[in-house]
């Protein structure tokens, strides 16, 4: 028994190190002068700390403004995706309509189309609307997602029939049942999807690069790219930028961790 516990902890420790090491390396490179970076493995034990790389990254990559833009764009995308996914999932889970299975299959099939295949068509649409260099251009193409709909629909399907009957007897319509019963019960799945949606929206690069030119709408990943280069003498600059750009995700995970773990284990205890 004891050896099994030790074994488990050893495995967990190993996995934690593997996951944590790149983050650790980014942080220690970011807080040291550039010259230390090529001093491997000495660089892993930080000394002569400095915040200079962060200042330079903020200035050179224009990260201040870009972080605000990323925040706005991400908030709208996540909000939009969560709302449309919940509504669509509700329809697919609880509402009866003709050809439901066919429609749902078609809906899911869009998951198979890679984003790269639609990028030029989306560009033409956005350009046609005159939306280049605007928040709409960054948000609109991403307001609906088959993945979120699927995930939340599966959670909705787990809502017991008895609850639906009970809420119908209490006079709840679709709207009341959705808000009062279905959404609270599917909260772990919705939380997991929120985090996922946030990550994708926050990390977008190619699309924002394509449809924006001015600083007023560009996002943080474009700023990061301007910091990345082949000059080893400046490696702490992109590292500092990456740490700054990664902070919102870090806090998001801290905040949602409880829900995420529940989301992962909720299937295990069912039934």
């Amino acid at each position: 028994m004891a050896t099994r516990t030790i074994g488990r902890y050893a495995l967990l420790t190993f996995c934690a190190v593997v996951v944590f090491l790149p983050i650790y390396v980014a942080v220690v490179i970011a807080i040291q002068p550039a010259a230390r970076v090529v001093d491997f493995p000495g660089v892993l034990l930080p000394k002569s700390l400095t915040l200079e790389p962060f200042r330079n990254a903020m200035r050179s990559g224009n990260l201040g403004r870009y972080l605000v833009n990323s925040g706005v764009v991400t908030a709208f995308i996540v909000g939009g995706q969560v709302i449309t996914s919940i509504l669509a999932a509700y329809a697919f889970a609880f509402v009866q309509f003709p050809f439901k299975r066919v429609v749902f299959t078609l809906f899911l099939a869009t998951l198979m189309v890679p984003a790269e295949a639609t990028i030029v068509a989306n560009y033409e649409t956005i350009q046609h609307f005159g939306w280049l260099d605007s928040y709409q251009a960054l948000v609109m193409p991403f307001l609906a997602t088959a993945f979120g709909t699927f995930l939340i629909r599966q959670a909705f399907l787990g809502v017991p029939q008895d609850l639906r009957d009970a809420s119908a007897l209490d006079g709840y319509g679709h709207w009341g049942f959705l808000r009062g019963v279905a959404v609270p019960l599917a909260r772990p799945a919705i939380a997991a999807f929120t985090v996922f949606s946030f990550l994708l929206a926050w990390n977008q690069y190619l699309w924002p690069l394509l449809v924006t030119n001015d600083d007023a709408h560009r996002t943080v990943q474009i700023g990061l790219k301007s910091l990345a280069g082949a000059n080893v003498a400046n490696l702490n600059l992109p590292a500092a930028g990456a740490v700054i750009a990664g902070l919102p995700i870090f806090f998001l995970l801290l905040f949602f961790q409880r829900h995420l773990v529940r989301g992962l284990t909720s299937g295990a205890v069912k039934g």
């Binding site: 050179s60 990345a228 400046n234």
Partner: peptide, 13 residues
């Protein structure tokens, strides 16, 4: 408007 690509980091500055 002048688009530059490929010049990042100190080259961008």
């Amino acid at each position: 408007t002048f688009w530059q690509s490929g010049l990042s980091q100190s080259l961008g500055d």
